[in-house]
């Protein structure tokens, strides 16, 4: 079996994988990082969003081997030195989550949205940028609020 090495949340990791092993499977099954979730099989729900070399991608549609040598950040790597990322705080403060299943992908997308659109990102932009993240619980109202709040504190 081929081996893959990459940086995950700052740590260099490697493991044996198959050609077909998806990044999300490598994270969840090999590394035990189960914060990244799988909610669909057609790359639409966004529960699996992680950052690869600083870009938000769906880990269910990336091959693990294609991430050789790259740097991956998952929800588990967002808090630094025990301090929550402002976006994590904002989701909690604004009740931007209910069942929590879509939340890791939502937060990773949110951080990416703010990085690309700035601290004063508008509601309409946030809603459009969330096209690749489905939440069944919140009606998005508080997610949008949380992202605006988190943006101002990032």
């Amino acid at each position: 079996m081929p081996t893959v090495s990459m940086k995950v949340n700052g740590d260099t990791v490697s493991g044996e994988v198959e050609g077909r092993t998806l990044l999300v499977e490598f994270l969840r099954d090999t590394l035990g990082l189960t914060g990244t979730h799988v909610g669909c099989d057609t790359s639409q729900c966004g529960a699996c969003v992680v950052h690869v070399d600083g870009k938000a991608v769906k880990a269910c549609t990336a091959l693990a081997l294609a991430c050789e040598g790259q740097s991956v950040t998952t929800i588990e790597g967002l808090a630094k030195n025990g301090a929550l990322h402002p976006m994590q705080e904002a989701f909690r403060e604004n009740h931007g989550l209910q069942c929590g299943f879509c939340t890791p992908g939502m937060i990773m997308s949110a951080v990416d949205i703010v990085k690309r659109n700035g601290k004063k990102v508008k509601e309409a932009t946030i809603r459009a940028e969330l096209d690749g993240n489905i939440c069944r619980c919140t009606g998005y109202h508080n997610i949008v609020k949380a992202i605006q709040d988190g943006a101002s504190k990032m």
Partner: peptide, 9 residues
Amino acid sequence: IGDPHVRNC
């Protein structure tokens, strides 16, 4: 096209 994650790949 697609969504931000699709556009990144």
